[in-house]
Amino acid sequence: MAATPALDSLTVGDEVASVRHLVTRDSLVRYAGASGDFNPIHYRDDVAEFVGLPGVLAHGMLTMGIASQAVVDWVGDPARVVDYQVRFTRPVVVDRQDGATLDVTAKVAVIEADAGRARIDIVASVDGKTVLGKAQAWVSLI
């Protein structure tokens, strides 16, 4: 387990994580089961096509969940993530063969020394296009 980063060791702009994940149809089925979100646009090509989508989509909440792991792994303890928000800006199409490759980077955006916390901004992208907006996690480093 990673040691907790010291707040005074951080500088705004520091990149704290850069990871790549392969999201497959298996990932979507697993998330559907774990979350209880069984909307078939997340696993059935015929339904996705019928409703006019470009393909089967990852659950937005799955993308949000995966993106948070970059911060969790860096900060060492998931309990230190005290506030986490995203905007869903672009659907993630998951190809039945190739899945989708999700790139996640995270940088220090704001440091509040008195409050003992920092805001980490996350960029999540597929094929170079961002899929989340305003993805921000506040971490407590007291």
């Binding site: 209880g36 909307n39 646009i41 339904v47 019928f50 993308t63 800006t89």
Partner: peptide
């Protein structure tokens, strides 16, 4: 579409009915 994520509508049996395009 405004966003990619469909809100879960509750009971799994209602999922197809709840799909946006349907």
């Amino acid at each position: 579409m405004t966003g990619p994520s469909e809100v879960n509508k509750g009971e799994p049996g209602g999922a197809a009915r709840a799909s946006p395009g349907l």
